[in-house]
Design a protein around this nucleic acid. Structure first.
Length: 301
DNA sequence: CCCTGTCAAGTCACG
DNA sequence: CGTGACTTGACAGGG
C-alpha cells in the first residue's frame, strides 16, 4: 500500500502548477514556466519520499497549453533529460505517479470535435509519463464522461471510442466512478467490454453507489487490475461536516481513515487522498497506517 | 502597488 | 436560453 495526494504541496515553497494566460503565450514563457514546474515537481517528490508518501498525482498544468494548437514547441524533446531524471528518482524510490485530465477530457462526448481535443489532451498526458520512462502502472485516470440523455448509449460510445485510441493511451487509461453519473457498476460494465481497470472512489461510491457495501465494492473492482497495471488504485476522501453532500473535507478524519484501513483488509492497494490540505493529511495518514502490514511491507521493500 | 474580473476546453442542474 | 457549479488560485490589466 502506498499513500498519496494530488498535484499540490503547500509546504514546499515552490509552485509546481504555474501557468499563464493563453493571450500571453510565447515559447520563452512556456520554457520558463515548464522549467519552474519541473524543478518544483522534483522538490515535491523529494518531500514525499522523506515522508514515506510514495504515491503522487502530477498536475495537468505541468506543461501549460501542451495540447493546444498554439503550442508548436517540442517540449518533450526540450525537457527530455529533466523528465528522465524525475522518472529515475521515482523508480528508485518505488514511487508511483499518476495523472488526471480535467473535466474537459471526454471520450464519450456526442461532439466528435470534443473527442478529438480529448485525444490530444490524453496524448499530452501519456507523453509526459512516457518521457519519464515509467511503466504502465503510472495511470491516467478519467471518468466515463457525460450522460447526454441516454446512459446506455453513452457508455457504448465510450467503448467504441476507446478502440480508436493510440495503444500508449490505452495501456495507461483507467476509469473512476463519479459522484453524479456513473457508478461502480457502470464502470464494471465498461470493464467487461474493454478490460480497462477501474479506480474505486469510496466517497463517490457512498454518494452515488450501485448498492454494494464497501467490501463488496472491493471484491468487484480489484479484479479489474492485472499484474502489469500495478496495485489497484483507491480514492479516499471525507465529507465536509455541515456542508453540501459531496463536498470534500478540509482535513483528514483519522478515525474514519483508520476504520477504512481496517474494513478493507486484506486487500492491498494504493490510496490517493482527495483532501483539501493535501500533503498535511497525507503525512497524518502515513502515521496512521504505520502499523498496517500492507503499508509496512512496502516501506521496507 | 493594489484591486478584481477573468481564465482553453464540457456537461448538467436549475431558474 | 442563460448562468453557475464543478474547484481555486492567481494571472494580468487597469486604477
Amino acid at each position: 500500500m502506498r499513500i498519496g495526494y494530488p498535484c499540490i504541496n503547500r509546504t514546499v515553497e515552490c509552485k509546481g502548477d504555474r501557468t499563464f494566460r493563453l493571450k500571453s503565450y510565447s515559447e520563452s514563457r512556456l520554457v520558463a514556466t515548464v522549467t519552474d514546474n519541473l524543478n518544483c515537481l522534483l522538490k515535491m517528490l523529494q518531500f514525499n519520499t522523506a515522508h514515506d508518501i510514495l504515491f503522487f498525482r502530477i498536475t495537468s498544468d505541468l506543461v501549460p497549453f501542451a495540447s493546444h494548437p498554439i503550442c508548436q514547441f517540442d517540449w518533450q524533446q526540450a525537457f527530455l533529460n529533466r523528465f528522465q531524471e524525475i522518472g529515475e528518482f521515482t523508480r528508485s524510490h518505488y514511487m508511483r505517479l499518476s495523472m488526471h485530465p480535467d473535466q474537459f477530457t471526454l471520450i464519450n462526448s456526442v461532439d466528435e470535435r470534443v473527442f478529438e481535443t480529448s485525444v490530444r489532451e490524453l496524448i499530452y498526458h501519456a507523453t509526459t509519463l512516457d518521457s519519464m520512462g515509467l511503466d504502465c502502472s503510472a495511470k491516467i485516470q478519467i471518468h466515463l464522461g457525460g450522460v447526454y440523455g441516454d446512459k446506455r448509449k453513452s457508455m457504448h460510445r465510450f467503448v467504441q471510442r476507446f478502440h480508436h485510441l493510440p495503444e500508449r493511451i490505452k495501456g495507461r487509461l483507467v476509469i473512476e466512478n463519479d459522484d453524479r453519473n456513473y457508478t461502480l457498476n457502470d464502470c464494471m460494465t465498461v470493464y467487461d467490454a474493454i478490460g480497462i481497470p477501474v479506480v474505486l472512489d469510496v466517497f463517490h461510491h457512498e454518494v452515488n453507489g450501485s448498492g454494494e457495501t464497501l467490501s463488496q465494492a472491493f471484491h468487484r473492482f480489484v479484479k479489474t487490475w492485472t499484474e502489469e497495471d500495478g496495485l489497484p488504485i483507491v480514492h479516499y476522501s471525507s465529507q465536509r461536516t455541515g456542508s453540501r453532500r459531496g463536498s470534500h473535507a478540509e482535513s483528514i478524519d483519522l478515525r474514519d481513515f483508520h476504520s477504512f484501513l481496517e474494513k478493507t483488509k486484506p486487500f492491498d492497494f494504493d490510496v490517493m487522498l482527495e483532501i483539501k490540505d493535501k500533503e498535511k493529511s497525507a503525512v497524518k495518514a502515513v502515521k496512521t497506517a504505520m502499523h498496517d502490514d500492507r503499508f509496512l511491507r512496502f516501506k521496507t521493500e
